[in-house]
Nucleic acid binder design. Structure first.
Lengths: 230, 230
DNA sequence: GGGCTGTACTTTGTATACCATATTACCCTA
DNA sequence: TAGGGTAATATGGTATACAAAGTACAGCCC
């Protein structure tokens, strides 16, 4: 035991959250929740008051959200909530498709027997969410589904990217799951991914995941088209 | 023409570069050029002096580089140059492979006749770079090759991601192009991508691009293995 | 000599006040 | 009511301050 510290479970689990991280989360959530709408200005001093932190922090947070793509800054004018046009949204769906398909294939080719149950659990969560009309639960369980897919094959770099992109299309996702019979098709498509993984068919899993994103993207594009007509 | 401003090309092209952007570029370059080595601490006050800007700016820049993955910060200890382990590097190559293959396929399926010449020009640049033993030229032309590939099919979201990832493996790229007969194989593999695009064969272009990244990744992994033995 | 400890120094994390310049809003006038 | 000047506002940037956390080091004890 010399030179080796045994894990006694005594370690003080301090939150280690810096104020900045808290502020980042709060502001991101505020944007995602629609407190600030696309193209709304984000006035530094106002945010200081609203978040209860100093300008230093606010500026760092804005910089962070800027590189996440949620905020965009025009020099001299300051930061605004980044508007999302259909072209960008389409591209985001496309990249997600490529990466999620990759992850699905890797899952199918993996030996880990814990993957399928974990995915099925997430799928059940989605199902429950639809039954309970709990939109947040649907979204969270969907994220969980993909988080499992990526993390079970240790692809956290790809997962981080997917996650970052997903944030930007968050409101589209909310609207997508409320469309038509998405409560039936969506879970069915995801179940197909799980089936392919269960069957150890990498190519099929790849296609199933890619198809699912394509159909989600199609709905999102329809939403944009509708919006245009207003 | 009422209510619509014609683009007269008169707009004053002011540099609009904020100090922050300049500082960001400088620090990023310094890290890439090896002025700061992986795991080196990045002391804020020192950076203020070295960059000639205030701490506010330095902190914003650090936050930005952090989300690029070039810097990592432990709360209470401050920022360090993010070390790159072989697992992360492998994952980065993998994501690049997925996205570049996608772009190659889209190029092959595109009608734009300007794609092939543009790619061939970049390829020629790479070739020249090797002949002149100009490492920087090889890297720049390689980046240009992919930039063309993504931008000709208007996929700047994917390009931004690839670009961000590429920064993190920059030194591996430098080492990779100096390995063995990479001066022959590398360009040959990229020429194969161009050929597939020229032949309008999407699936082939996809595979050629994916294969190229795989072989680059393999060399990078060998470099890691060597390093381990020191 | 080697390890432990307390202290002094350094750096981070945060807040605040301040300034010059660029934008925006507004009001006044012709 | 169009135009123009002015005031208010916000940004981009700087400097300074200070508590808390982390680090280094001299000195003490064994």
């Amino acid at each position: 035991m010399v030179g080796k510290v045994e894990n006694t479970g005594m370690k003080v689990a301090r939150p280690t959250k810096t104020l900045r991280e808290l502020a980042l989360g709060n502001l991101r959530d505020a944007i995602l929740d629609g407190v600030f709408k696309p193209s709304d200005r984000l006035v530094e001093r106002d945010l200081c008051e609203q978040l209860g932190v100093s300008r230093t922090i606010v500026r760092e947070v804005l910089r962070h959200l800027e590189s996440e793509g949620l905020v965009s800054t025009q020099p001299g004018k300051g930061p605004i909530v980044a508007p999302l046009d259909s072209d960008i949204a389409q591209q985001i769906y496309e990249v997600r498709g490529a990466l999620e398909a990759m992850a699905a294939q890797l899952c199918a080719e993996s030996d880990d027997p814990s993957i399928v149950p974990a995915l099925e659990a997430a799928l059940a969560g989605i199902h429950d969410g639809y039954i309970q009309s709990d939109q947040a639960k649907v979204l969270n369980s969907t994220s969980e589904f993909y988080r499992v897919m990526f993390s079970k094959v240790n692809r956290h770099v790809a997962w981080d990217i997917v996650n970052m992109l997903t944030v930007r299309i968050n409101h589209l996702r909310s609207m997508t799951i409320q469309t038509g019979n998405r409560d039936v098709n969506g879970p069915a498509e995801m179940a197909a991914i799980v089936e392919a993984i269960k069957a150890r068919d990498g190519a099929l899993a790849y296609r199933a995941a890619a198809d699912h994103v394509v159909s989600a993207a199609a709905i999102a594009m329809a939403i944009f088209a509708d919006r245009q007509q207003d």
